[in-house]
Every structure is written in structure tokens, then in C-alpha cells.
């Protein structure tokens, strides 16, 4: 004996059936593939293998950057680039940056940062070379042993603040931006561990707050740069989200990527 069903009941049963089918179908949703921006090949002239300009062999290709700088500042850029790439006595970072040449370089870095993408890249290459050619490792007897590392960290932070999110989708800047995040964490961790005894919480907390904001860690959705860092350095980012020594994972990856970036000119 069939129990008659009303129209409403039939509609409800059909809707429930559709929901059951959907519940099965969601299992087939494929995870979003990670497409690296640098995998996209641009047409026309471009800077090939940009990471070479940030690595230990940057000096070999440094001259190629000149053609990408606007004509009105190309001469100054070239002079500063040559000066920086030929700096060989490993001066103290803060001392050198406060010298006439250093101030000129700082202004040039700031100028390039506001320019087009190739200039922004050249600006980052100069910061990397500065980190490679000067000493910023905390000094044992200094009153403010973290000052050098913090200064370098602030230069990286300035670049990341302006270009970090945009760089994540840029064929030229994506990989350099990820490496800049790692180097920033490395530098700030050195500032954190600057005292002979104990650690400084201020640089750590500052770096943590900034990286949190930059990558979208702990938020419901990562930023585009955060997704790139997650794809390449997921383990390091997991450790960053933890409570114990958050910068260590990113810093170790930076050391793997740039073993000569130790604050003592690679010595």
C-alpha cells in the first residue's frame, strides 16, 4: 500500500537527492595547481635567470642591468653598481651606508624601487650585493649588536612592502621576492640572536608581524606571495606558524640558498 506523497514532500526528496549527488561530486574537486609565475615565458627582451643577479656570481652579470635603467639615472646607477660590486674590504654596513657613497646608494635604491619592474629588480640586486659586500653580523662588544642586521632588514622590508604582493604574479620578480622573504627572515633572526647571552624579542616580533601580514599566515587565505612561499618552503612556513623560534625555518632555507650571505662577506 503506497503512502501518497504531497508535492512539497516530493520536491524535498528530490532536493535532498540532488544534495547527496553533490556530496559525492565534491570529492572530485581537484586541488589548485601551483603555477610558478617564472614558468611563463615572456615575449621580447627580458632579464633571463634573474636569480643569477642575486647569487654569489652576480658580479659576472651585473653590467646587464644598466640597459634596464631609465636613461636619466643610468649613469649614476652604473657608477654605484661598479662601486658596490668592487667593494672588497668588507666595511661595516651601517658605517658604509652612512658614508657619501652609501647615502648615494641608499637614494638610488629608493628611486629604483619606485620605478618600473626591471628597475625594482635592479634595486633588489643592489640590496643583495650590499648584504654580500658589507659586514652586518652582530658584533660581540657593541652596545647595539643588532643594529647592522636590522638596517639591512629594513631595506629588504621596504622593497617587499612595495613589491612583495605585485611580485608574486610577475615572471621576473616572483622568485626574487620569495628569496627576499627568506633573506629578510635570516637577517632578522641574526638580529634576534645578536646578544651573546639571550635573545632580543623585538626584532623577532617585528619580523613575525610583518611576515604574517605579507604572506597572510594565520589568515583564512594566504596572499599571492604567501602561496608562492608555501609552495616552495612549506616546511619553513609551518615552523613559522609555530610558537618556538618562528624564523628558523625560513632562515635555514635562506642559508641553503645563499650560503655566503652570513654577514661577514662570505668569510
Amino acid at each position: 500500500m503506497q503512502v501518497p506523497l504531497s508535492k512539497q514532500a516530493r520536491i524535498a526528496l528530490v532536493a535532498t537527492g540532488v544534495l547527496l549527488v553533490l556530496a559525492v561530486a565534491v570529492r572530485g574537486i581537484t586541488p589548485r595547481a601551483t603555477v610558478a609565475p617564472e614558468d611563463v615565458v615572456e615575449e621580447g627582451p627580458r632579464i633571463v635567470e634573474p636569480m643569477q643577479f642575486l647569487g654569489a656570481g652576480a658580479k659576472l652579470r651585473g653590467g646587464e642591468l644598466d640597459q634596464w635603467i631609465a636613461a636619466d639615472r643610468r649613469t649614476r646607477f652604473k657608477a654605484l653598481r661598479q662601486l658596490l660590486f668592487n667593494l672588497d674590504n668588507c666595511p661595516d654596513l651601517v658605517e658604509w651606508i652612512d658614508s657619501m657613497d652609501g647615502q648615494g646608494l641608499e637614494r638610488m635604491i629608493a628611486e629604483l624601487r619606485t620605478g618600473k619592474r626591471e628597475e625594482a629588480f635592479a634595486s633588489l640586486a643592489l640590496v643583495y650585493q650590499l648584504a654580500r659586500a658589507t659586514e652586518w653580523k652582530p658584533a660581540l662588544m657593541s652596545r647595539t649588536p643588532q643594529a647592522e642586521a636590522e638596517r639591512l632588514g629594513s631595506m629588504l622590508q621596504d622593497w617587499l612592502r612595495m613589491w612583495g604582493e605585485r611580485a608574486a604574479k610577475d615572471t621576473l620578480l616572483a622568485e626574487p621576492a620569495v628569496s627576499a622573504v627568506l633573506l629578510y627572515a635570516h637577517v632578522m633572526r641574526m638580529a634576534e640572536n645578536a646578544p651573546v647571552i639571550g635573545t632580543l624579542s623585538a626584532p623577532r616580533e617585528r619580523a613575525k608581524a610583518y611576515i604574517n601580514e605579507l604572506l597572510g599566515v594565520g589568515q583564512s587565505r594566504r596572499t599571492a606571495l604567501g602561496e608562492l612561499v608555501q609552495a616552495r618552503h612549506g616546511d619553513a612556513l609551518s615552523r613559522f606558524a609555530g610558537r618556538d623560534d618562528p624564523l628558523v625555518g625560513l632562515a635555514k632555507d635562506a642559508q641553503t640558498l645563499f650560503p655566503d650571505m652570513n654577514g661577514t662577506c662570505g668569510k
Binding site: A23, V24, V26, R27, G28, I29, T30, P31, R32, Q219, S220, R221, R222, G226, E227, Q230, G234, L237
Partner: peptide, 12 residues
């Protein structure tokens, strides 16, 4: 049947 990745994306 759903899971969420570290970037906040959903997948099956």
C-alpha cells in the same frame, strides 16, 4: 569530502 589547503583553497 572536502579539505582546505594552506593557501585557503578548497579541494576534494
Amino acid at each position: 569530502g572536502l579539505q582546505i589547503d594552506q593557501n585557503g583553497s578548497w579541494s576534494g
